[in-house]
Amino acid sequence: MTTFSCTNITRRYKNFCLDNVSFSMETGYFYVLAGVNGSGKTTLLNCITGVDNGFSRSFSGDAQIGGVSLKISPEAYRRRLGYISENRPFFMEKSVAQNGLTYGEFYPDWSVRDYSSYLSRLGIDPSKRIYQLSKGEFMKMQICFSLAHHPDFLFLDEPLEGFDPVFRREFLDLLGELLDRGMGILLSTHITEDVDRLTDYLLILENGQLAADASKETLNDRYKELTGISSPHIRDLLELEHTQGTPRS
């Protein structure tokens, strides 16, 4: 089992501050990073994946995967994670296959065979150029690429938005498979209905601060304590945290 941990992640912008966020995760579990729009989900993911620290003086804190530190060995750290985001830059004029080969060189565990098999499973034409892909196809392609380099943790930034309902189900089944294989997943979303079934732990961000970091059961118990009824939905837990503004559990 591999552990991910981040400590005191702080990122300051002119009008927003991600404030001392710390939490940890283990492989084999599904974590949902929930929060309203503008709560800092993407900023946090950019910080813990190493996308947003290269030139920034307003960034502090550290993250580790299996003892490999983002600050000390950023390249080794980033090889151990997959990050799926709408904003991920690929070579737009190159094909899906060429992009895989270009970026795959940076990952020692990257497998061209796995990449093509995931592409065919998700119905992506490897000869298509990136700019020809729809939003949903682009996310699918990223999933294929990330899975082909066998990361310990998969971070997904609002991945469900571009998908049709049929693929959402397929996609969640795929995530379930990855969990069974021992991968750790952190998915950020503000639409939580789809991930209710898979969620093990819930992280709730409120104005750049971690308002809750607990298992779904613990939060559900708290919800029951406060309202008298049990809630199987993340949405209700999120609403409660949002209205209460409770401190970190």
Partner: peptide, 18 residues
């Protein structure tokens, strides 16, 4: 790309690259 010159270093933002 699409008629614009894009700095190629920005393409490696998400990759494990220094």
């Amino acid at each position: 790309e699409q008629g614009q010159a894009v700095p190629v270093l920005s393409k490696y933002l998400f990759a494990p690259v220094d």
